[in-house]
């Protein structure tokens, strides 16, 4: 569950949000510049809230007035970044296994689990390739695996299907939905494509300027 009542402020941008998300997949829709990515970065803890209060699963993670701020590494949130942000010096498999090793799992077990999830997303064949050698679509699938794999308590997906070709879009959407349903946590999907929302989300929040 995510509850945010406050101002998201990044640089010159500032916008008030008032939202309550249960354990559902919510699509956030709106024109460029309305603060969709800033909203996700604030929930992840990469940008502090300007004012107000942010709770994840009932726990306050950011409340400037109360001087409370939980650092991103302690929030246990899975996130697909818009540009994927895969570590360039690691293989696809090590990228995917990273969140598991951060939770103390042994490397070989983490790699085995990551390999299974890469298989489900159809990118097991590139597991041993370094991240910069992957195509846009492959890189995005690895980024999705990386966001879903560590049993996060909320998942944020910033344009998660933008680089996936039309033929595989449906199967990737199905995989994401299946994983999110299994996790049973709040998930926020930011996208420009209404069909992604129709197939993936249980609810849509439309923001205008």
């Amino acid at each position: 569950m995510i509850s945010l009542h406050g101002t998201v402020a990044v640089g010159a941008f500032s916008r008030h949000f008032s939202l309550e998300f249960g354990n559902e997949i919510v699509g956030v829709f709106g024109a460029n510049g309305i603060g969709k990515t800033s909203l996700l970065r604030t929930i992840a803890g990469l940008c502090p809230l300007g004012e107000g209060e942010l709770k994840v699963n009932g726990v306050i993670v950011d409340a400037p007035a109360k001087k409370q701020f939980v650092r991103p590494e302690l929030r246990n949130i899975g996130m697909v970044f818009q540009d994927h942000s895969l570590f360039p010096f690691m293989t696809a498999l090590d990228n995917a296994a990273f969140p598991l090793t951060m939770r103390g799992m042994k490397r070989n077990i983490a790699r085995k689990l990551a390999m299974e999830t890469l298989e489900q997303f159809g990118v097991a064949n590139v597991a041993e390739q370094l991240a910069p050698t992957l195509s846009g679509g492959q890189s995005q699938r690895v980024a999705i695996v990386r966001a879903l794999i560590g049993s996060p308590q909320a998942v944020l997906l910033d344009e998660p299907l933008s680089a996936i070709d039309d033929e595989s879009r449906e199967s990737v959407r199905n995989q994401i939905r299946e994983h999110l349903n299994r996790l049973g946590v709040s998930a926020i999907v930011v996208s420009h494509d209404r069909t992604d929302f129709d197939h993936l989300c249980t609810r849509i929040e439309n923001y205008t300027r």
Binding site: L46, G78, F87, F98
Partner: peptide, 8 residues
């Protein structure tokens, strides 16, 4: 930032 979000 990505590493931090993943718990590093």
């Amino acid at each position: 930032e990505a590493a931090a979000v993943m718990g590093a």
